[in-house]
Amino acid sequence: MIETQLSELAAATEARIAAVTTADELEAIRVEVLGRKGKLAEVSKDMGKLSPEQRGVVGKLLNAAKQTLENALTARKTAFEQAALAARLDREWVDLTAPAPGVGLGSLHPLTQIQAEIEDLFVSLGFTVLDGPEVETEFNNFDALNIPPDHPARDMQDTFWLSNGHLLRTHTSPVQVRGMKKLGPPLRMIAPGRVFRNEEVDASHEHTFYQLEGMMVDKDVSVAHLIYFMKTLLSAIFKRDVTVRLRPGYFPFVEPGFELDIQCLICNGAGCPVCKQSGWVELLPCGLVHPNVLRLGGIDPEEYSGFAFGLGLTRLVMMRYAIDDIRQLQGGDLRFLTQF
């Protein structure tokens, strides 16, 4: 009986599908039973021998058996594929806590970083940035800044003198002279750079350090402008509101000259060891540009006035990172430098 034959085949095949253990066995069953020359195909060959009525009944049975077996096959196949994928993924386990191979980021020197940060502030305020040479003429370093030979103010800056008759600049102020000549009034400029003092080196003294000179020349620049400007700038540098005060200070290239103090950022003026209990920390020298200096820069002091200041970049770096030994900055020790 063809019906019996069919149902037996379907039941046996279903049992075999359920029992396979590999995808290959499953495929073999598919070919054997459902393939073009498979057992179901053979059964369907005999269909022609049946009566049209029988043919309709058996045809339905045949299709149902085929459908059932295909579903069972697909389900098993999917299960095998999923298991295979899961196994592959499992094999692909990676220890992501292991270090990444290849090269990590290097570090910029802390002085480079603070200099860039401050340059950007100034540029945003319309200042240009100028460079000057490390080796300067005596004239630019001293005379043009109103410090003639044998002036006692030269004692303030122990100088490295050179075999060619020149010197290593003791401050970035000579760039004022170069800047005035290059830019002409009105002008706003800064000059960051390396300066030199002939001093013994220890944890708090260096013969090589970094300053940033700033200058603004325009009509009617006043002390009140200077105070406003320095307060704005220092608040930006320290990223908080800073209280400043000016008091007299002597620097031959400014008149009047000031020492600018900021209220101690540690104790907010209450007094602490950092500010030596005074509530104030001396931060930078500044003043109105001396008329002699303007004149030597080719600017008429009757028409223009200006202010100038010198910011100690090395000092700012040491303050920001609480560095207690200035020699680290030029020691070339990567254990120090990679911290920034």
Binding site: L111, Q330, G332, L337
Partner: peptide, 11 residues
């Protein structure tokens, strides 16, 4: 960015 760390030396 290529992994080099900056040093400053004396002049």
């Amino acid at each position: 960015a290529q992994g080099y760390t900056e040093v400053y030396n004396y002049s």
